[in-house]
Nucleic acid binder design. Sequence first.
DNA 1: GTCTGGATCTGTACCGATTCAGAGCATAGT
DNA 2: ACTATGCTCTGAATCGGTACAGATCCAGAC
Lengths: 364, 364
Amino acid sequence: MSKTEGDDGSPRRLTLLTLAQDLGISRATVSNAYNRPDQLSPALRARILARAAELGFPGPDPMARGLRRGRVGAVGVLVDEGLSYAFTDPTAVLFLDGLARELEADGLGLLLHAARAAGDDLERIRDAAVDAWVVQSLPERHPAVAAAQSRGRPVVVLDQPRLPGAPLVGIDDEGGAASVVRHLTELGHRCLSVVTMPLQADGRSGPADLRRQRSATYQVMRRRLAGAAAAAEAAGLPWTEVPVLECTANDPDLAARAVADLLARPDRPTAVVALSDQLALGVLRAAATLGLAVPGELSVTGFDDSPAAAAARPSLTTVAQPLRDRGETVGALVRGLLRGEPVAGPAPAPVRLVVRDSTAAPPS
Amino acid sequence: MSKTEGDDGSPRRLTLLTLAQDLGISRATVSNAYNRPDQLSPALRARILARAAELGFPGPDPMARGLRRGRVGAVGVLVDEGLSYAFTDPTAVLFLDGLARELEADGLGLLLHAARAAGDDLERIRDAAVDAWVVQSLPERHPAVAAAQSRGRPVVVLDQPRLPGAPLVGIDDEGGAASVVRHLTELGHRCLSVVTMPLQADGRSGPADLRRQRSATYQVMRRRLAGAAAAAEAAGLPWTEVPVLECTANDPDLAARAVADLLARPDRPTAVVALSDQLALGVLRAAATLGLAVPGELSVTGFDDSPAAAAARPSLTTVAQPLRDRGETVGALVRGLLRGEPVAGPAPAPVRLVVRDSTAAPPS
DNA sequence: GTCTGGATCTGTACCGATTCAGAGCATAGT
DNA sequence: ACTATGCTCTGAATCGGTACAGATCCAGAC
């Protein structure tokens, strides 16, 4: 007769205590069988595990263990506005993949949370059972960030925002953008246009003036624009004459729509600098629709060097950043923080200009 | 003087009890302030909340609450072999998005776990602090599934495998595949070829004979193949003469590589049936590389109707399944199960053939 | 024969909350 | 004046484990 049922005959939940009583030993010993094999004789341990399997006891309860040990084995990831965006962007996907891979080493899972600004959401973030948070590309001053920090658990930031006490993993966005603009000006381009992801979370799109560029709460975009501006000015191109088009999301379709008019005009630019590969793919598509030859009549550049950049036709000149590596770096930082090691954010990872088939000298 | 520090002056962790003592009231009352506003006077509640904000108390600890209440507010998602695959497939992304959206209503987050077969992984799954599991397209008999079930928590399955006691959300895969093959035969095609995702998790690729098709542990693919076979036979095409090419992942590049040889041969098929849109995109790419006109010289079909299908050039004839809806359906089932409602899996969702520009009559 | 030490195992105090029965105390009803 | 009612608030049990300080026992040292 097994004791899987209570005295009243109803099926009872199995716990460490159940098992201990069944075997006539103490809970502590059963606990040790699972957590510290060296604390009891191999024979007894085997007997415990065998009986556990027999009764169908799945091991210590995760929440109780979590409460006592102070860790649940999960790392929260705060992604911007809706998970679908995070998933759709190959940049984010590779990051998450690298992160997951690294965290697996400590048995940590990923708890995804969308960071809407709504109050209800903040509560969910504050009350999420996680050991640490990873904040991924949120605009500055986003309330969800404060919610994530409220428990005092470790926080690691990807790209932005810079937070006191939280290591940040980022790249040299200015340098990357500058290098791509320099590449174009060196090819002889004098008439550029820029396509960018959202600068603020207000859903605005269309031309972004200097003021909006400077006040962008998405730091990554602000920096890339600044880098591009600096390089343009250095080449003698007044930045104010370079149109900057803002899209409401990092989506090829939106980019294609955004540049359609611009490219159809007779005084169209000879090169379009897209601040992400996704946007660049949209520009390529728009050019194809209009029958514009790339790079013959129009040069296009991207940013990120996502897998799609190399696969595009023509293949995309872009700025390579170590996408999956960043996930692993962040994961390693999280693990370090959870072990209590004081860790500092690494220096910004270097970026590298990758010249492919989408850029050439402007038509003469 | 605030009491945020212990008697020894060291910073002490804030708990409900801390706050209660600070205010000279009982813990129960503080707890009620957070969870049952109707159980105490509004005035006291306001005082408690105000003092909490003052001291920086972030609210009840998630794990302790989880232990006591028996729920943590997280739903585990078991995805096949590495998160990157799950993220890369737009089908899965839309599913996850719908799921997350639906679960948000109950404040539930998504805990992602890769389902490798390794023993270490199983332990992580068994010990994950989640209220329920969603199993997404895992092969039959995958050990991770048993691990997910071991705690006796609710499980909902997407597509496969069919599990006793776990509702399943799926579509009419046979019907969908049959309709697309019927569409092609009605256009006059007599020489088909099929490209499929993995049939088993053994990493094999290349031609899959009838035996391998029938013994596929990925039920979805087995069914689509069966549906296609039935439709082909019904149209008088012996299925054994239809080559079936297996790819090691649902990846356009792999599909392109897989069909490259086939399409270069003089006796190439007049139509390629890809069992997912991702694969179909690869076939389109291969055709473009070879200079084959689609649909003039080659018809191509997909399956899923992911956003990319409509955006492809030419746009893809495919089988539409309600991708995001499925996520919401699964989410609703999970919520129901967590509320203790007995729920049955819905009938397979209907699929619909969407004819676009990638199919036409074969060249004469 | 006593002492020391190591290997095993147990008792018990936590971890930080939620819950439920009931105590205390006004107010209202009769 | 006395009970009934309703609103607030409290005490203590409980959720299921883990960790630490012993207790017990036996082998080997002196």
